[in-house]
């Protein structure tokens, strides 16, 4: 059995208890998208303010489990100030860590993921992978709009 400590790493719990960038952004100029996990009813809202191909600011809201909430928090820190290409790379790297992207997606070195690296253990708990990818999919939606 994968131990709980693989899942609930201290950094993860810290982002869960003290979420960074929780809140809203005025739309416009920011864009907004909502994501749902039909399995457990988790909901996430992601706001992103993009100018000149750079994510200037990002906020998230919604309700969910420790994994979905902490991922959103870590993701917000990781993407803030990054170019859209860098964000896409991060997402691919994260999803390859979650074993979702398998076509050589792990182009960024693990260090690039920053705190998100702490979520590596989620892959041992297959039902929770969706919790960790919900906010990424929602961010993609936001950036597309």
């Amino acid at each position: 059995m994968a131990g709980l400590e693989d899942l609930y790493r201290e950094i993860v719990l810290d982002h869960y208890r003290n979420p960074r960038n929780r809140g809203e952004l005025p739309c416009p100029p920011a864009q907004r998208a909502e994501g749902f996990n039909p399995l457990c009813g988790d909901e996430v809202v992601v706001y992103a303010d993009v100018a000149d191909g750079v994510v200037r600011d990002v906020r998230f809201g919604g309700q969910g489990c420790s994994i979905s909430q902490s991922t959103a928090s870590m993701m917000s820190v990781a993407v803030k100030g990054r170019s859209l290409e860098e964000v896409e790379k991060l997402e691919r790297s994260f999803k390859s860590m979650m074993s979702i992207v398998t076509d050589g997606g792990e182009t960024a070195s693990p260090a690039d993921l920053g705190d998100l690296e702490a979520l590596r253990g989620v892959v041992k708990f297959p039902v929770r992978i969706k919790c960790a990818t919900l906010c990424w999919n929602t961010l993609t939606e936001t950036l597309r709009s």
Binding site: L4, Y8, D42, Q63, G64, C65, S66, I67, R128, C131
Partner: peptide
């Protein structure tokens, strides 16, 4: 505590 985390523990 979210229900997912409860059932996981």
């Amino acid at each position: 505590v979210h229900a997912h985390d409860i059932s996981q523990v």
